[in-house]
Amino acid sequence: MTAIANTSYVTYELRGDVAHIGLNRPEKRNAISDAFVEAIAATVARAESEAKAAVIFGHGNHFCAGLDLAEHMKKTPIEGVRGSRRWHEIFAKIEHGTIPYISALHGAVIGGGLELAASTHIRVADRTTFFALPEGQRGIFVGGGGSVRVARLTGTARMMDMMLTGRVLSVEEGERSNLAQYVVEKGEARDKAHELAKAAASNAEISNYAIINALPRIQDMAKEDGLFVESFMASFTATSPEAEERLRAFLEKRAERLKIPGQN
């Protein structure tokens, strides 16, 4: 059953176990204001309560052109800090939530839009997509988590290049820079993202939680600390009732086998 809801900035649709969160300010290229980011927070909370995976996409010709600069330039320094920290809090709910998020990208994925995409777990881009971090040219600095999340995806050298020179990456360059894991034809990103989200939603919920929460944290640890945590996660997930049933189904040849590329 599909349920659809709309706010002034975000649309929400539940397709089976997959929530679709749509950025809905197309006249501003989905630029994110304070009210907009709060609408994202509300829809993410709803998705966490009733879905097993989610797709984030943009209405109109672009995914998201970033921060609403007209609103930002009116803020005092402390208001700017508070706004940035609120972005951090909300985007962390995506990155370290309880369900996987897949972003469907097209058109501009710029500044704060790239920071939002970087907080999702898988990124699908169609061939109209381009990536940029023009903060240096605007006289500002990233404030939505980009210095951590985007830098970890691309490497500091590539991110520094983008910010210092205003370099715009094509979708192919973005894929090579790990900003997208899938590239599809124009207009197909949302469908592909839904396909991936549906596959993720079929996993054991405890496994999904471990993947999206343990893996990033293990990367922050020393090697031996990471391996230690891995052992606990492996043991904890394997002893769940759902894991026991899924493993038994595999051993009894009742589970679907891996699909090898190029083979039927």
Rank of each mutant, 00 (worst) to 15 (best):
1 M>P: 15
7 T>M: 04
8 S>E: 12
12 Y>P: 02
14 L>E: 07
17 D>V: 03
18 V>H: 06
18 V>I: 13
19 A>M: 03
25 R>D: 11
26 P>H: 00
26 P>D: 05
27 E>V: 08
28 K>E: 15
28 K>A: 11
28 K>R: 11
28 K>Q: 13
33 S>M: 01
46 R>I: 05
52 K>D: 12
52 K>A: 11
52 K>V: 09
53 A>T: 11
56 I>T: 08
59 H>A: 11
60 G>M: 04
61 N>M: 09
61 N>D: 14
63 F>Q: 07
64 C>I: 13
65 A>T: 13
66 G>A: 08
69 L>N: 12
70 A>G: 05
75 K>W: 11
75 K>L: 15
77 P>T: 15
77 P>V: 15
80 G>R: 15
80 G>V: 13
83 G>W: 03
83 G>V: 01
87 W>E: 07
87 W>N: 06
87 W>L: 10
93 K>V: 03
96 H>T: 10
97 G>F: 07
101 Y>N: 06
105 L>M: 04
105 L>D: 01
107 G>I: 13
109 V>S: 00
110 I>R: 04
111 G>F: 05
112 G>K: 01
114 L>M: 15
116 L>F: 14
118 A>L: 08
127 R>N: 10
128 T>H: 05
137 Q>T: 14
138 R>L: 14
144 G>W: 00
146 G>K: 02
154 T>G: 00
155 G>E: 11
158 R>F: 01
163 M>K: 00
177 S>F: 01
177 S>H: 05
179 L>D: 10
183 V>D: 10
183 V>K: 04
186 K>R: 14
186 K>F: 03
189 A>W: 10
189 A>L: 07
190 R>W: 09
193 A>G: 04
193 A>W: 12
194 H>D: 05
196 L>D: 03
200 A>Y: 15
202 S>F: 12
209 Y>R: 14
211 I>R: 12
212 I>T: 11
217 R>V: 12
223 K>F: 13
223 K>Y: 14
223 K>M: 12
223 K>N: 14
226 G>Y: 11
230 E>Q: 08
233 M>G: 05
237 T>L: 01
239 T>I: 03
243 A>R: 07
246 R>Q: 07
250 F>I: 14
253 K>N: 08
253 K>E: 14
253 K>Y: 08
255 A>K: 14
256 E>R: 13
259 K>A: 05
261 P>R: 05
262 G>V: 15
262 G>S: 06
264 N>I: 13
